[in-house]
Structure formats: C-alpha cells, structure tokens
C-alpha cells in the first residue's frame, strides 16, 4: 500500500506585497482522507490551493502532489486531480452538453453517466448555457464534471461559496459519497464551517500567518470546550491552555482543550477566583470561533 502522502507542503512562505500570508507552513494530506482547510477570509486558503496546483509561485518552500513538485506536475498526475476553483469558475460559454463533450476528450476514464446523473436532476435543458444558470446549478455542473473525471483526489476551493443551504447539503453528501469509494482523497477549503462538521475527517485551521491547529475533527469536537464563569478579576492573564478569553456582560468566556478541573486549577494558579464555571460542548463552527476569535 502506498503510504506516500497525496499532498505535502513544506516550509511554504508567502507574501502579498509586504503582507505576510504564512511563514514555514507545513502540512500533509494522507490518502483516503477528507481534509478541510479552514480559516477566515484572507488567511490564505485559496493561496495554498493556487500554490499546490502550480498557479502561484510561493516566496519559498515546495508543495508536492502525488510526489511531484507543484511547478512541474505531469499530465499523468493532473489526470488524477479534480479541481474546483473558487466561485465554481467554469467555461461558462459552453452549454451543458458542450462542456461534457469538451472534458470527455481529455480523460480516458471519463464517465458520462456520472455527469448526467447529476445534471438531469437540475431543471435545465442540455442546450442551456452555463452562464445563464444560477449559482447552485453551476456548482452542480462543476461537481458533475468532477465526478465524471473519476479523479483520485478532489481539490475544492470554497465549494459552498454563493450556494444556498440545499445545494450546500447536496455538495456535502456527494463529496462524502465520492470519498467513501476506493480510498479517494478530498482536500477542501471553506470559511463556512457548519458544512464541514459532517464532512471532514481532519481539520487544519489557518490563522493569519500560521497554522493554528491540525487535528482530527472528532478530537476537536470531543475535547475543545467553551467555559463561562464569573469573577471579580478585571483581567485574565494569557495562558497557553486558554483561547480567546473575553468578558461578555457580567460573565467571562474562554475556550480550552483541557477539562474543567485543569481550567479551574489554571485560574487558581493565577490567584483568580472564579464562580459558576460551566463547560459547553461545541459545534465545529463554535470551536473555530473559539480558536480564531471573533472579528
């Protein structure tokens, strides 16, 4: 069994002008995983997708796709990679039929039925031009084309952008279905976290300039909690076990991977009396906000 990671990014450093996006970013995506790259707007999610696919030269560092460097990916490897660009960008001057005919010419493993199974569920004719479709319909065209290609890895950049909840749910289900087959890998980015919870196995949370966290989604959901409490203290000192501590009205809230006792002990160590400390389990979205903070 091939244990080489499908995606490897090593020491990626990039700036836009003088603005640092990240320094020495390192991560891997193992075969058969669904990895979500989460982050606020501007943290560099699309940037890493562009770097990975050879559409952007980083200031330093390398990315590899199936072991091939990003600036020299072979056609054979590109055949195994299905990519969805941000905004579901497609050749929208084609109609439904034409775009399938076009892409079919490139992929020997092309499965026409996989495309039309999805398309025929939409209320569109085969002669309808893609640029006259709604955002949701266009996203399905994009998805249909990806499935017809039968890639080994799907790279989806912000697949939920502009989609209403129905289409977002459809996307999530279809991606799960795809990933369940035959050790397929999915690498996706999003800033709409609520969809990710049902979808991703592993999670990388990007903050400005660095990776904040790279963990299994389930681990985050099981261990990362919100704690609320009251205290007379006017200031809560920083701690490496607490995240984004802030006062809301007459109560304080903080977040931690530690259990309630460890959190309480932490306050005692700093001579802070806390009352009514409560612990809450979080959704992935709440956990994301807890880790990255509110705007």
């Amino acid at each position: 069994m091939n244990t080489q990671p499908v995606i490897q990014c090593e020491n990626i450093t990039h700036y836009y002008g003088n603005r640092l996006i990240y320094r020495d970013l390192n991560f891997e995506v193992q075969r058969g995983k669904i990895l979500g790259l989460l982050g606020k707007n501007g943290t560099g999610k699309t940037t890493i997708i562009n770097i990975l696919n050879g559409f952007l030269k980083p200031r330093s560092g390398t990315c590899k796709l199936f072991g091939e460097k990003m600036d020299s990916i072979s056609p054979k490897t590109r055949n195994r990679v299905g990519i969805l660009l941000e905004g579901h960008v497609q050749h929208s001057y084609f109609n439904v039929e034409q775009i399938e005919k076009y892409y079919a010419g490139f992929f020997p493993q092309w499965d026409k039925n996989a495309y039309y199974n999805l398309i025929d569920k939409l209320h569109v004719t085969r002669k309808q031009k893609i640029n006259t479709m709604s955002c949701g319909q266009r996203s399905q065209v994009a998805l249909g084309l990806l499935f017809a290609q039968h890639p080994d890895i799907l790279i989806l950049d912000d697949f939920s952008m502009g989609l209403d909840p129905g289409y977002r749910r459809l996307f999530v289900e279809k991606i799960k279905e795809f990933a369940a087959n035959d050790n397929k890998t999915v690498f996706l980015t999003s800033h709409i976290i609520q969809d990710m919870e049902r979808l991703i196995d592993d999670c990388i949370i990007l903050d400005y300039g660095k990776i904040l966290l790279h963990e299994k989604t389930q681990h985050i959901l099981n261990t990362f909690k919100r704690f609320t409490f009251k205290t007379n203290a006017t200031n809560i000192p920083n701690s490496n076990i607490l995240h984004n501590t802030e006062k809301l009205g007459d109560r304080w809230e903080t977040y931690s991977f530690e259990n309630i006792n460890t959190v309480r002990d932490n306050f005692s160590k700093h001579n802070i009396n806390v009352d009514n400390i409560t612990e809450e389990k979080l959704s992935l979205e709440d956990a994301f906000i807890g880790l990255t903070g509110k705007y």
Binding site: N53, G54, F55, P75, K76, R78, N79, V81, I83, L85, G87, V89, Q90, H91, Y93, F106, F107
Partner: peptide, 18 residues
C-alpha cells in the same frame, strides 16, 4: 479574454496535457 476572466486559464492549464 474569456480565458482571463475569472482566471479561467487555470482550468486550461490544469488539463492533463503538456
């Protein structure tokens, strides 16, 4: 111009052909 709009050229460059 259509290739440059929304950077569609990425789709063309991503095709499995040199």
């Amino acid at each position: 111009l259509p290739e440059i709009q929304y950077k569609r050229l990425k789709l063309t460059l991503h095709l499995p052909i040199k």
